[in-house]
Design a protein around this nucleic acid. Structure first.
Length: 424
RNA sequence: GUGGAUGUAGCUCAAUUGGCGGAGCACUGGGUUGUGGCCCCAGAGGUCGAGGGUUCAAGUCCCUUCAUCCACCCCA
């Protein structure tokens, strides 16, 4: 067989995250973890592979995610598996399977990891993308909604992502939503001619989504349509009112928008989205809502819940636009002249690294000039110069790069000089 | 899934009617004894996204394909 030279590439919509970018990822993750832990949420990690039926049941067969965006596989025994397209259904599966409901009355969980959807790639939309997913399981009251929303806002604001808009709506509950849905269907039946093809299809299967349509003709046709905010039952109205009051008291700005709908069927009552103007069409940085029926739908106990997901790629785009990275800690470069000095420099470098001081030296043999250039490129704060003279005297030359000042330092004093006296 | 734009050095981009593939930045070395940034000199770096076709001749024209980007759609 003839060897074929193939150019290997990553799969469409799947991306490498390189060292130049990784500082943003680390900062997003570590800051989010800190805030989440402070608010009592605990991390869990779950497989990327699940039974496909979980999402069909959880998210809904009619949704775009399930009907056309799932990565489906058959395993060797013919079971239908998929790469997880979202986290909530999966967390709920783990919650039920591991009987978390018996361990504690309320579970506050978060998961950070990749999700997979087979969509047309675009900036801010990838086939493998990452989410920080947060769920508060087991409480029905508006305080949970407020806790979740305030937490989300604190994470996004604390990271500094520029102007963000929080939009909230209530989708109603199992009592009032069915009424609204049938009213709306009836209304849309008369307007059918005026709707775009997509909406004609939606008007029967998923009529709420017509409110999302940006087509001018559809917007016009919705003139005089039943409004979801007029169909809320008393409980839904009170619930939303309580949340909005708590948000106002917390100083969190929001927009109440009765056209906000969500693409996953499990949402009840509270639905929300955080958008930016800085990212073009893929403008939702985070989204979520309440899912009071999902756990029982998936075979678990009756546990009303609420959660959200932050899109990490989109969040990072905003971090890049809005904030320069913090400078790293001090760095040291060791320049050496001659073989003996190089061996000495190596041992010294490893000693400094053992004390967690970022230290580098030249790998090959090169002139001092060249080594100084390397030190500049590396952005070293200090350069240690070691040649025969220093070896003889038992010292190193310590150069402070900003000022250019140079002093001879005894080896025994060096660590103290670089790290400071407080370090043991 | 639909429509459109773009693929040339690591990055940002040039290349006339089809006629020897370039610049800036970055990289490597040097500018005489052991000193960086600025400056100067030199070097290295390209299957011109991939495959086919037209032509004496293709980065340039045609077809196919892959990828990226934008909008729709969808969502985080």
């Amino acid at each position: 067989m003839v060897e074929e030279t193939v150019e290997f590439r990553s799969v469409r919509g799947f991306h490498d995250i390189l060292p130049e970018e990784i500082a943003y990822w680390q900062r997003l993750e570590s800051f989010s973890r800190r805030i989440l832990e402070a608010h009592g949420f605990k991390e869990l990690r779950l497989p990327v592979l699940e039974m496909a039926s979980l999402f069909k049941r959880g998210i809904g067969e009619e949704t775009d995610i399930v009907s056309k965006e799932m990565y489906l596989f058959s395993d060797p025994k013919g079971r239908e598996l998929c790469l997880r397209p979202e986290a909530t259904s999966q967390i709920v599966r783990a919650y039920i399977q591991n009987r978390m409901d018996l361990k504690e009355p309320i579970s506050k969980l978060y998961l950070i990891g990749p999700m997979f959807r087979h969509e047309r790639p675009q900036k801010g939309r990838y086939r493998q993308f990452h989410q920080i997913d947060v769920e508060l399981i087991g409480d029905r009251g508006p305080i949970s909604d407020a806790e979740i929303l305030i937490l989300l806002w604190r994470i996004l604001q604390g990271l500094g992502m520029g102007d963000l808009v929080l939009t909230i709506n209530s989708l109603g509950c199992e009592v009032c939503r069915p009424h609204f849905k049938s009213h709306l269907k009836e209304f849309l039946r008369d307007k059918r001619e005026g709707l775009c093809p997509d909406c004609q299809r939606r008007s029967e299967k998923n009529p709420l989504r017509v409110f999302d349509c940006k087509e001018a003709q559809c917007k016009a046709s919705l003139e005089g349509a039943p409004r979801i905010d007029e169909s809320w039952c008393g409980d839904c109205t009170d619930h939303l009112r309580a949340i909005l009051d708590l948000l106002s008291e917390a100083g969190i700005p929001y927009i109440l928008d009765s056209r906000l709908m969500r693409g996953l069927d499990y949402y009840t009552r509270t639905a929300f989205e955080v958008k930016t103007k800085a990212l073009g069409a893929q403008d939702a940085v985070a989204g979520g809502g309440r899912y009071d029926r999902l756990i029982s739908t998936l075979g678990g106990p009756d546990r009303p819940s609420i959660g959200f997901a932050i899109g990490m790629e989109r969040a990072i785009e905003l971090l890049k636009l809005n904030e320069a990275l913090r400078p790293e800690g001090p760095k040291v470069f060791i320049a050496s002249l001659g073989f003996r000095a190089r061996l000495f420099a190596f041992k010294l470098m490893m000693e400094l690294r053992a004390r967690e001081l970022k230290t580098e030296m030249a790998y090959g043999e090169s002139s001092l000039k060249s080594q100084m250039r390397q030190a500049t490129r590396y952005r070293a704060e200090y350069v240690l110069i070691i040649g025969d003279e220093e070896l003889e005297a038992g010292t190193v030359t310590l150069k402070e790069m900003n000022s250019g000042e140079q002093t001879q330092v005894k080896i025994s004093d060096l660590i103290r000089r670089l790290i400071g006296p407080k370090t043991p």
